[in-house]
């Protein structure tokens, strides 16, 4: 593979993981925390429902997990494509 197509493949792989992470990011906050909250009404959590928990706690915890997952994944990807910093 030429250098150009190599870096294109790296960028494509990066975009793919960004799409996945951003989809989860939107699902837990805008989804579970706001728009889909009525659908989660049936799942009780400490005197309220799962949607409330996601809006005030869960989404933040998932955000942290997403960033660390992305960091770990990208470090692997950087090494795989040989574009990491030595």
């Amino acid at each position: 593979m030429s250098e150009k197509s190599y870096s294109d493949a790296y960028w494509k792989a990066n975009l793919k993981v960004i799409y996945i992470c951003m989809a989860i990011w939107a699902l837990v906050s805008f989804g579970f925390g706001i728009v889909f909250r009525p659908l989660l009404k049936g799942i009780p959590v400490g005197g309220t429902d799962l949607g409330f928990w996601f809006a005030q706690q869960g989404s933040i915890l998932v955000f942290i997990a997403l960033i660390f997952f992305y960091t770990w994944y990208m470090n692997r990807l950087d090494r795989k494509f040989g574009v990491d910093e030595e």
Binding site: I18, S29, F52, A55, Q56, L66, I67, Y70, M74
Partner: peptide, 29 residues
């Protein structure tokens, strides 16, 4: 802000933390 509105002001919690996911994935590196 949260105490006197309750659930409705959860926006502050999600908004002021969710921005860091955008920073980490889209801008900072």
């Amino acid at each position: 802000l949260i105490a006197f509105v309750g659930y409705g002001n959860s926006s502050f919690l999600m908004g002021w933390t969710g921005g860091y996911v955008m920073l980490a994935l889209l801008l900072a590196p």
